[in-house]
Structures are given as C-alpha cells and as structure tokens.
Simulated scan of single mutants.
Amino acid sequence: MPATLYERLGGGERIQRLVTDVVENHYNNPLIRARFANSNRPEVERHVFEFLCAGSGGPQCYTGKDLVTAHKGMNINEQELVAAIDDILDAMSRNGYDQAEKNEVVAILYSLKGDVVRL
C-alpha cells in the first residue's frame, strides 16, 4: 500500500516544523501579513497543523472552523491566495520536501480555492 501524504510529509513532528515556517512566512509576507496582524499566532499554528495533518491522512482531528466560515467576509483575492501558496512552497523547500509532495500540496490547496477566495 502506498504511503499517505501525511507519512510522506514526515508525520506530526516534521509537519509541525513545516507549519511553524509557513506561519512565519505568512506573518512576514507584505501581501498577506495584515490578515494576521490581530490573530493569535499559537492558535493559527495549531489550526494549520491540525488542518494539514487531518487533510493529509494523519490521525489528528481538525478543530477549527470550516474554510468557508473561517474566511467569510475577508474578501480574499487570488493574488493573496497565490502569496499564501508561495509561502507554503518556500517553507516546503526549506524543509527539504520533494517536488512530488509540493505538487500534491499545491493541487490540494488549489482545490480549496472556492472555499477561500471571494470575488
């Protein structure tokens, strides 16, 4: 049986390191950092960790809001979505992930575009 994306991402400990770098990138990205200015960083990291783990086949449960509810009223545009995805890819590169895992994560993220981007 092929390994799950969760397993290929290295399990919880390695995913936590990835998430820490992703969130750091988001907080420093001039295109989206204002979206995080008043957020609770540990809570953001916890929800991103849970979401990524649960969505990739891990045992963790996601306890946050669904994507539509979480992003309702934010009027996120496609440029901001791309900036967030670029942050994720940068963090994946810095954490030594292979192109196959990057491609799979990007495909998943783009599949969720309709739940996040509101034009």
Rank of each mutant, 00 (worst) to 15 (best):
M1C: 10
P2V: 01
A3F: 02
A3I: 00
T4P: 03
L5C: 09
Y6F: 11
Y6Q: 01
G10D: 09
G11T: 05
G12Q: 13
E13V: 09
R14G: 01
R14K: 14
I15F: 10
Q16D: 11
Q16H: 11
R17C: 04
L18A: 09
L18G: 08
T20V: 12
D21A: 08
D21L: 05
V22K: 04
V23Y: 07
V23G: 07
E24N: 12
H26V: 00
Y27W: 09
Y27V: 03
N29L: 02
L31Q: 15
L31H: 11
I32E: 07
A34K: 15
A34Q: 15
R35F: 10
R35M: 14
R35D: 14
F36L: 05
F36T: 03
S39L: 03
S39D: 02
R41H: 09
V44W: 05
E45W: 04
E45S: 12
E45V: 03
R46E: 13
H47D: 00
F49Q: 05
C53I: 04
A54N: 08
A54P: 11
G55Y: 08
G55Q: 03
G55D: 08
P59N: 07
P59W: 03
Q60P: 01
Y62W: 09
Y62S: 08
T63F: 07
T63M: 06
G64Y: 01
K65I: 03
K65W: 13
L67N: 03
L67D: 05
V68I: 13
A70M: 01
H71Y: 01
K72S: 11
G73Q: 03
G73N: 03
G73L: 01
M74K: 14
N75A: 14
I76V: 06
I76P: 07
N77T: 00
E80S: 05
L81A: 09
L81E: 07
V82T: 12
A83D: 06
A84G: 14
D87Q: 05
I88G: 01
I88F: 02
A91I: 10
M92K: 02
M92S: 09
S93Y: 12
S93V: 15
S93K: 15
Y97H: 12
Y97V: 12
D98W: 04
E101V: 13
E101Q: 13
E101W: 00
N103I: 11
N103E: 15
E104I: 05
V106W: 05
A107G: 15
A107V: 11
Y110C: 00
S111A: 12
L112E: 13
V116L: 04
